[in-house]
Design a protein around this nucleic acid. Structure first.
Lengths: 208, 208
DNA sequence: TGAAATATAGCATAAACATGCTATATACCG
DNA sequence: CGGTATATAGCATGTTTATGCTATATTTCA
């Protein structure tokens, strides 16, 4: 009783959506594939589609909405839909927050084609699939990256505004030595060597 | 005298590269297509390929390098190659700086498939092709931000990644002195005193 | 063509940063 | 009660930035 598999892809980058839809059809043997670049169009389709089995590839970054809120809406409309996040994001905080919404799988756009196959297999066995790149990112995240303390984050804000140690010290009423200590502890946690790298880290972790 | 068209795509997101390669083959009638996710592999291929006609789809954001410096290298290796920037970037300054490197075309990843066709047609007529979305973005370009030169923006990208002067210099093949000059000119234009402030400025103006 | 902008490169010096150490007081958790 | 995390502060030293100058070649554009 081999049934036809259905899949849709939602990505605001139309070329990517269209290309990936073609790939699913040609390489993964999925018969019916449609691509969307807007959440509204997609939801309209989903309501009309009914409660059949459906693989949904979702991007995290979408123009006016967020892939996560769409996931909630998808569950409401079709509880049987298999939702796979396919995203270019690499920030551990982002991947982690996606997982808390319990999709069927998370895939990096940088992953190999074989991981797409593996993902389908895992979903058929009702297992959560996380691509190897994200596994790696999450494991180093959980282990090494502890949260910044409130005082550290406060100091970080000033650095992100471009203030120097001395300026930050006078604004926080701390000794410059203390500011340096906070900064160096953050840099140790984030494993970076310069303020520039720390600010990049902070951006990626949505700390600023 | 219909010859076989060759194309390659360079995108660090493997799934995107692979999917788009499939699209070019199936929808654009291009016979030989290869995809790469790393500049080094790609350049190796390019050297072996020789001076035949070749369409090269380049992404702007690449892990350790920048699509722009790659373009310079491509011209050196194969002067007849047709280079098409295919990018998800939307910042006017970025699009503008890409254009100053004189690729054969610039396409947004959000563009319609029809624009890919149109792009090939334009290139055959030796016309520069700019997709409609980018045309629109450039026309509403805020003149104030335009004060950063292409080279300056390229250097800025490295600073935003947390690289030091020395690291940036080695990656751009410039003298550290030159990198310092570019940096100080940007800082003067943005009226700031530290890298941190300049990065804040760059964030706020969507330059990075 | 000629002025202006861009890209390149250098020297010198003071300020700021990065990092190796140490140290005390307080707070929180089990 | 005692261990761990947090917040505070310091010294010493080498590296990197920031900034004041100058200078040439190339490109762009009016």
């Amino acid at each position: 009783m081999k049934t036809t598999s259905h899949a849709v892809i939602l990505d605001d980058q139309k070329i990517v959506a269209f290309s990936f839809a073609l790939l699913l059809k040609r390489e993964c043997g999925i018969e019916l594939v449609q691509s969307f670049s807007q959440g509204s169009e997609f939801l309209q389709f989903l309501r009309a589609f009914g409660k059949q089995e459906l693989f949904i590839f979702l991007d995290y970054y979408l123009p006016n909405e967020n892939g996560l809120s769409l996931l909630t809406e998808i569950r409401r409309i079709n509880g049987d839909a298999k939702v796979i996040f396919l995203t270019g994001a690499t920030a551990p905080a982002v991947i982690s927050s996606i997982l808390q919404y319990r999709p069927e799988a998370v895939l990096s756009k940088s992953c190999e084609l074989s991981e797409v196959f593996a993902c389908f297999e895992a979903i058929k066995k009702k297992e959560l699939y996380i691509c190897s790149e994200f596994e790696r990112i999450l494991s180093t995240y959980d282990k090494k990256i502890k949260t910044f303390t409130p005082r550290e984050i406060e100091v970080l804000q000033y650095f992100s505004e471009g203030y120097s140690v001395a300026e930050t010290a006078s604004r926080t009423f701390l000794s410059p030595h203390t500011v340096v200590t906070h900064r160096r502890k953050m840099m140790a946690k984030a494993e970076c060597q310069t303020i520039g790298q720390m600010l990049k880290y902070a951006r990626e972790h949505n700390l600023i």
